Simulated assay, not measured.
Amino acid sequence: MSERWKPNVTVAAVIEHDGRFLLVEEHTPEGLRLNTPAGHLDPGESPLQGTVREALEETARAFFPDRFLGVYLARFERPQRGEDVTYLRLAFGGRAGPADPARALDTGIVRTLWMTLDEVRASCERHRSPLVLRCIEDYAAGRRFPLDAVHTDASVYGPS
């Protein structure tokens, strides 16, 4: 029997304030890249909890989601390392609180920056994945699903 395909589940926050979007600049094997605050969903947490956690870790800001943007799928190939990975991203939109100057940014994050939609569009060659722009474009277009569109069963949090 062949091995079962398992996409990597990631969560992402699209944060806008006064026409600018909050991105992170991070170290990757391909060099410095731009991304929305995002990362892997951890065991025992809902997608919403994971997004709030990732945003805090990567931006030192509390994230207050008010919408679900959608489910996104993308494939990433790194032939020189023999990697072929599919990412399943659940993206949420909302606002962020002020930066906590006492909190360090997550390992690998160089800085945060606020960019206009035009600046995000113009920097595509530096994006971590094509989903960065797609999620921001969906937010800018007014895409909005209720937060409860993503259900997490209680079994995720531990034994019954």
Rank of each mutant, 00 (worst) to 15 (best):
R126L: 12
R89Q: 10
E119K: 12
G50W: 01
V132K: 09
G50N: 01
G97N: 08
D106C: 00
W114M: 06
R20Y: 08
P101A: 01
P79I: 04
V71H: 10
A74Q: 15
P101V: 03
C124I: 13
R128C: 15
A74K: 14
F21A: 04
G70C: 09
G93V: 04
S46H: 05
I15E: 02
E25M: 11
L105N: 04
D106R: 14
L88S: 15
H40I: 08
L73G: 06
P98E: 10
L73A: 08
R33F: 09
L41D: 08
L88K: 14
R75W: 12
R78Q: 15
T10G: 13
H27V: 14
P29D: 06
I15V: 07
A99C: 11
F76W: 15
T112N: 08
E30D: 13
I109S: 00
G70V: 10
Q49E: 13
R20N: 09
E45K: 05
R33K: 15
Q80A: 15
T51G: 03
T116I: 12
E77C: 11
V9R: 12
L69G: 01
R103K: 06
M115G: 06
E77F: 07
L88N: 13
Y72P: 09
T107Y: 12
H17T: 11
T107C: 07
E57L: 05
R67Y: 03
M115S: 05
W114G: 01
T51E: 00
F21P: 02
R128H: 15
R95Y: 07
G70R: 04
L69S: 00
P43Y: 14
R81F: 11
G50T: 00
R53F: 02
P47A: 07
I109D: 00
T59A: 02
T112E: 02
A99Y: 02
W114L: 06
L113P: 05
F63Y: 04
R126C: 11
R103V: 03
S123G: 06
T86D: 15
A102L: 10
D118S: 14
A99I: 05
P65N: 08
C124E: 14
E16M: 10
R103S: 07
L69K: 05
Y87P: 02
E45G: 07
L22Y: 01
A122Y: 07
L131C: 11
M115I: 06
R95H: 13
Q80M: 07
E54S: 05
L56Y: 12
A96M: 11
G19F: 11
C135E: 15
P79N: 11
V132W: 14
G94S: 05
R67P: 08
G108R: 03
R67G: 08
I15L: 00
G82H: 14
T36F: 05
D100I: 00
L48Y: 03
R81T: 09
A96S: 05
A122C: 14
A60C: 02
R134V: 04
V9C: 05
P65Q: 06
P29Q: 13
F64V: 11
L88I: 00
D42N: 12
L23Y: 04
D42W: 04
R67A: 12
A38K: 07
V24W: 09
E16P: 13
R67E: 09
G44Y: 11
